[in-house]
């Protein structure tokens, strides 16, 4: 198989259960290298459970997750992370009681080669001057936007193979939402494949190549991002009954 054409992420027949509760049933998904795939759907449609199964935080009940040709189904979150998957969840992925600098040291530790570690931390701090100013401050004392910058800095300082961005703009002011999307564009330009879970549907669709719409844990529509809008109005608000 030609490795350039090989998709970075292939998900086949994925099923997620929490006890008796079913969150995702038989979802298929493919993310070609360098593409941005938007995963959309109402709250509770199973988007975050899908992301959790792909990043190894929840073991799938059935199905397969293949990363760049390697089957990673059922692997732990830490080992999937070490294979070059960065996950940025809606709840800030930071250590509240560690300093900004220590946060970056931990977050970047397994993302870059040993001799690049110190340099990567400096790169990350340079990208967001406000973080450099607060490098010795506990991350929990930062504002919500600054905390999300910290997570973005990790992504940009060591571009991962696959970025799973789960509602990164949730609860952020519009100015910061812009910043998030600018950073994601930078990451895409670096060649990062992005799985984008977003509530700002319009922005997500403007940015993504393809879109997948989930409802009650199933894929109900997939296609080019530009065609997704009409489908969504019905999906979110229900058809006139």
């Amino acid at each position: 198989m030609n490795s350039a054409a090989e998709p970075v992420l292939v998900v086949g027949g994925l099923e997620v259960r929490y006890g008796d509760a079913r969150a995702v049933f038989g979802v298929d998904l493919e993310a070609p290298a360098g593409h941005v795939v938007a995963v959309l759907g109402p709250n509770g449609a199973g988007k975050s459970s899908l992301a959790a199964a792909i990043t190894g935080r929840v073991p799938p009940a059935a199905g397969k997750v293949v990363l760049a040709g390697h089957d990673v189904t059922g692997k732990s979150a830490s080992s999937i992370s070490r294979m070059g998957v960065a996950y940025v969840p809606e709840e800030r992925a930071i250590f509240p009681h560690l300093t900004v600098q220590d946060n970056l040291r931990v977050l970047l530790r397994f993302a870059v080669p040993r001799d690049d570690r110190a340099a990567a931390v400096e790169r990350a701090l340079e990208m967001f001057p406000i973080l450099a100013e607060r490098r010795r401050q506990q991350a929990g004392t930062l504002s919500g936007g600054e905390q999300q910058m910290l997570a973005l800095a990790r992504v940009l300082a060591a571009p991962p193979t696959l970025l799973v961005a789960d509602e990164m703009s949730l609860g952020l002011a519009p100015r910061l939402v812009d910043l998030v999307f600018e950073s994601l564009e930078k990451a895409r330009d670096e060649g990062v494949t992005i799985l984008l879970i977003e509530q700002y549907v319009e922005r997500a669709l403007a940015f993504a190549n393809e879109a997948v719409i989930l409802r009650r844990g199933r894929v109900v529509w997939r296609g080019p991002a530009v065609d997704a809008h009409a489908e969504l109005v019905a999906g979110y608000l229900g058809s006139e009954g």
Partner: peptide, 13 residues
């Protein structure tokens, strides 16, 4: 501080 984030960062808790 946070076992969940540590796992995301590649640390085996």
């Amino acid at each position: 501080d946070s076992p969940r984030v540590a796992a995301i960062a590649g640390i085996n808790p």
